[in-house]
Design a protein around this nucleic acid. Structure first.
Length: 283
DNA sequence: AATATCCGCAACCGCAAGTTT
DNA sequence: CAAACTTGCGGTTGCGGATAT
């Protein structure tokens, strides 16, 4: 015997709810609470299925709903959470008191998706879109100049977005760290990093056989993480050749992946300059 | 002013997980 | 232990208002 439908749909009303139906449902739940959704429409005198009543209550009638437009801080938090959790809307919604998973899903699909696409961020990976692969453009002459311009624009947009990320709630403060890294190995710490008084230090040499070491400590000097990077002449040559291969710096970031997940933008403009703008999430 | 197109959102559907019998 | 049932989740649809032509 197969699974039966949640309710007998014959004779049941569908589509938008009327004010009268809303009142009936709200009055019933306020007076009786929710014990069994299947029984709610029958007891409340509604020609709806229990599933429809539940949805209406959760997404519209619940008294603790926040409503109203998303703030910029909420959007930034949503982007962060989505990069970590993917399309797990209910999990994401649990970080937004008064917001429903449906509301968040809708906001993501109608606004943020477009925003990130415009900023050159691939979804759902949150990685920068490979324009050459997307467009089938060969890198030479004018194309390269045009491409560099696009890369700079993307970089600027992403950096701006990160700089705007200043509000992080307490729970996220424990697990999220925002970093903006520019130049040949210099790190500028943003947002939660500085809030947590975390120190980051890095040293490097300029030889072809150059090496660097990086470490992260908390404000009391307790060791959190360190990394020694030995860069071969071969990997140095990769840096900036065509912007496609991030060379040893990318390898370095990859090696950190066991501890953090990297989500962001990385570009190598020249053999000596690499720009990263993105987020490390503590795994 | 009329029509077409776009966009946001509420609501639906199917499925999976969890619970009860 | 399996079937029946309930609840919750995520993808999708379609209506209605806003905007463009």
């Amino acid at each position: 015997m197969g699974r039966q439908p949640c309710c007998d749909k014959v004779g049941l009303k569908r589509g938008p709810w009327t004010i009268e139906e809303d009142h009936k449902l709200m009055n019933f739940i306020i007076n009786n609470g929710i014990h069994c959704w299947r029984m709610v429409p029958k007891l409340a005198g509604l020609l709806r299925c229990g599933k429809s009543c539940r949805l209406r209550w959760i997404n519209y009638l619940r008294p603790d709903l926040k409503r109203g437009a998303f703030t910029e801080a909420e959007e930034n938090q949503l982007i962060q959470l989505h990069s970590r959790l993917g399309n797990r809307w209910s999990k994401i919604a649990s970080h937004f008191p008064g917001r429903t998973d449906n509301e968040i899903k809708n906001h993501w699909n109608t606004r943020i998706k477009k925003k990130l696409k415009m900023a050159g961020v691939d979804l759902p990976t949150h990685q920068p879109i490979d324009l050459d692969h997307e467009n089938g453009v060969h890198k030479d002459g004018d194309n390269k100049e045009h491409e560099n311009q696009q890369v700079e624009e993307k970089e600027h947009e992403f950096s701006t977005k990160l700089n705007e990320t200043t509000t992080i709630d307490d729970q996220d403060l424990l697990t999220n760290y925002e970093v903006l890294m520019t130049g040949g190995g210099n790190l500028e710490l943003e947002g939660a990093w500085s809030s947590r008084n975390t120190n980051y230090s890095t040293t490097s040499t300029n030889s072809d056989q150059g090496s660097s070491s990086s470490s992260i400590e908390d404000s009391s000097g307790n060791h959190l993480y360190s990394q020694d990077r030995h860069q071969s002449a071969g990997s140095k040559a990769q840096l900036g050749d065509d912007g496609e291969d991030y060379g040893s710096l990318k390898q370095w970031v990859d090696s950190v992946d066991s501890m953090f997940s990297w989500d962001g933008f990385m570009n190598t403009n020249t053999t000596t300059s690499t720009t990263l703008a993105g987020k490390w999430t503590l795994l």
